[in-house]
């Protein structure tokens, strides 16, 4: 079960996320930076609740009011030409 993929876009599995959390005692944001989970094509829309749940379970902390994995624009993939306007 530890080999189950959590982040589909970047193919990051539960084991890698768990190990990273216990090694660095990190937040969902730090997991994203260290493992790329939640950083792929979909922008974390699919795995965000899963990442939050894993961090909550391992750290034993309840979710806070600010969104753990900061949402940043663009929230859909956009070509550089479009951003440049």
């Amino acid at each position: 079960m530890d080999k189950v993929i959590i982040c589909r876009c970047e193919e990051v599995d539960l084991e890698e996320i768990k190990e990273t959390i216990s090694k660095y005692q990190c937040s969902a944001r730090e997991i994203k930076l260290r493992t790329r989970a939640g950083m792929g094509y979909c922008g974390g829309r699919t795995c965000r609740p899963a990442l939050n749940a894993i961090v909550a379970e391992i750290s034993g902390e309840k979710l806070r009011h600010e969104i753990p994995l900061k949402i940043q624009p663009p929230i859909r993939p956009v070509s550089l030409g479009k951003i440049g306007g």
């Binding site: 589909r8 094509y41 979909c42 829309r45 699919t46």
Partner: peptide, 8 residues
């Protein structure tokens, strides 16, 4: 997977 544009 999601069929409504969320997961790409």
């Amino acid at each position: 997977y999601c069929n409504i544009g969320h997961c790409f």
